[in-house]
Design a protein around this nucleic acid. Sequence first.
DNA 1: GAGTGGTCTAGACCACCCC
DNA 2: GGGTGGTCTAGACCACTCG
Lengths: 237, 237
Amino acid sequence: MVKYQEIANELRNQIQEGVYKAGEQLALEREMCEQYGVSRITIKKAVDQLVKEGLVVKRRGSGTFVKSLANEDVHDISMANQFSGFSKVFEGHKVSTKVVRFDIIHPTAEVAEKLNITTDDFVYDIVRLRQVDGSPVVIEYTNMPIELIPGIKREVLEKSIYRYIEEQLHFKIQSAHRFIRALLPTPEEEELLQIEHGTMPILEVEQVAFLDDGRAFEYAKAHHRGDKQVFRVVSIR
Amino acid sequence: MVKYQEIANELRNQIQEGVYKAGEQLALEREMCEQYGVSRITIKKAVDQLVKEGLVVKRRGSGTFVKSLANEDVHDISMANQFSGFSKVFEGHKVSTKVVRFDIIHPTAEVAEKLNITTDDFVYDIVRLRQVDGSPVVIEYTNMPIELIPGIKREVLEKSIYRYIEEQLHFKIQSAHRFIRALLPTPEEEELLQIEHGTMPILEVEQVAFLDDGRAFEYAKAHHRGDKQVFRVVSIR
DNA sequence: GAGTGGTCTAGACCACCCC
DNA sequence: GGGTGGTCTAGACCACTCG
């Protein structure tokens, strides 16, 4: 662990434990330099991390201040803005997966463009129903180029494709570009998600995911039951 | 404009104009130092900006590479992750506002906690219907402490509260913490948004917005017609 | 005017990737 | 082993806030 992360963690803990309360001013950057025995740029990197997480604001000419956050929001704030696959989000719960479809097809023109391949290439065409603690939560429609992500078997789908990519293929996942919408479920989706007709919308998360060399490796649409998923973001000017 | 922003803009333009294509490697950081006549940290800050925007990836030991993005996504990428009020988003369109409610009340316990005030304080209680080019698009439910944001009149509501806060009160808006969900509209909302019953979901954006001194100044829920709004995010590991 | 964070320098060493 | 980006230093000056 590098210095600026350690300092960021320490400051985050102090805020979450109430050492610094809502609205209070943090120690000055030049003071923290002495306190931690590091240079000012290192302190800046640490505090900038907290700004990105949404815990504090910096004002040139004044100082750094803790945001007036509700108690509940102070504690799980560092989870916002974060990238993670489905299995990761529900760690600790009993997650099961039903593979609804598992084929190889030519991608549509739209998917081909998103993945930077041609419609002559091949992609997996995967549909999975995810259940958490026995209740259906989300349907995931996934396309991945077989050339980039070879060797996917049914047992991989039943666990985590991301874990397979990182642990078996030794790729690193870098980012995801997401579009979020509200939709109504199709009749098939109502059945899979156990929704009584007309009583529940779908939160759609469309995403293109990227490896750390910049290649797009996944085009996916996740259709979440409206009552089971909330998407969280901290937007800074 | 500072150096690192100018360099970031120049690099972004080069990528958008195809000087650097998908998958290609950018000049090395040490090369760019000479090219632009700046130090390495300045180059790093510029390139890190593009990483945050989702245009490139950096790999220690290898270099910096342009992401394999679809053409459409390369060009408006810098708009993602950004904070902006409603009026800003629809700049250039004919926006009209119908003030449905404009009262002053005590906040609910939930809202009071989010705004860091008590239920004995007062907040504006505002409901507005926003129309773009004549079509209803979103209903905004807004609470703001009257003490922090005094002097709001009906004509402010019909334009932009944010512009009033920045231009009249001379506050700066720093950030918004958002929760995004899918909902079904209430009968009243169906009427206001001209939705035929049961044919369209709502994309709810719940947010607490903050001034640059860290104070929460707004609790709002925006209920967007499902067909009129997409929320866009770039998530990085 | 005093004090804050923002930017920038010129250099060093480290962790990691690829040959 | 050679080259990449990541971190860090010790210092300087600038832009801004506030009394």
